[in-house]
């Protein structure tokens, strides 16, 4: 204990933060606030838009940690496509515009208790473990595109290829799930009454748009 305190006092104290730390702290507060609004707001579309703020703030944090390639991938994939997909999903399931009072389920106090307990325990452990650990950000960039590409295609080629197979499987699965034809034949074999309901003009709206949605994914 005394050794750790000694290290912290002689090395880098928490009370005299560097400029990078101040920037990280400010962006982190904004990111966390956006995340909290995302999970607590009653307006469903606003939740998706606040998620953009949280994910963009995380991209800035990656930049501050000198992992610039990850930061741009984060902007491209999360902010560019995942949030757009979520907004598509909200539209296709006809989420109400405006405040919806039943956005939170009944087990909200239990969820709050679990989350606060997890946050307390993990913050305690993490702060106790890494209080005196210092990241050297001055000794060169860790995640430039050249460095990341070289390590990815030299040491991680096989997982990379396996991942592309997984993405292909996910693409095929999403198309199969949202295809109209196989859905109807399976439905007619199983439940005749629901098959009639699915072919009604009221159900036409989300169905007609979903093949385009499946193509939108990649």
């Amino acid at each position: 204990m005394s050794h750790a305190v000694h290290l912290a006092a002689t090395g880098h104290a928490f009370l005299s933060p560097t400029g990078v730390e101040i920037a990280f702290l400010l962006v982190g507060v904004a990111t966390l606030g956006a995340a909290v609004v995302t999970v607590t707001t009653k307006q469903l579309v606003h939740a998706a838009l606040w998620l953009v703020v949280a994910l963009g703030g995380l991209a800035v944090e990656y930049l501050l940690l000198t992992a610039e390639f990850i930061a741009w991938v984060q902007v491209l994939i999360y902010v560019g496509s995942v949030v757009v997909l979520l907004l598509f999903g909200l539209m296709l399931t006809r989420a109400p515009i405006g405040r919806s009072p039943d956005a939170d389920s009944g087990n909200r106090p239990a969820a709050l208790a679990v989350a606060v307990a997890a946050a307390g325990a993990l913050v305690w452990v993490v702060v106790d473990a890494f209080r005196t650990t210092w990241i050297e950000l001055d000794k060169g960039v860790q995640g430039s595109t050249a460095v990341s590409g070289e390590s990815l295609f030299r040491h991680w080629v096989l997982p990379f290829e396996a991942l592309s197979v997984l993405l292909l499987a996910a693409l095929v699965g999403a198309i199969v799930l949202s295809r109209r034809h196989g859905h109807d034949s399976g439905r007619a074999a199983g439940h005749a009454t629901r098959g009639n309901g699915a072919q009604s003009p009221g159900a036409q709206g989300p169905d007609a748009q979903s093949p385009g949605h499946g193509k939108e994914k990649r």
């Binding site: 990280f24 702060v127 890494f130 210092w134």
Partner: peptide, 9 residues
């Protein structure tokens, strides 16, 4: 930068 900042965030 202290490692505690990103870990706590």
């Amino acid at each position: 930068m202290h490692l505690a900042y990103p870990a706590v965030l």
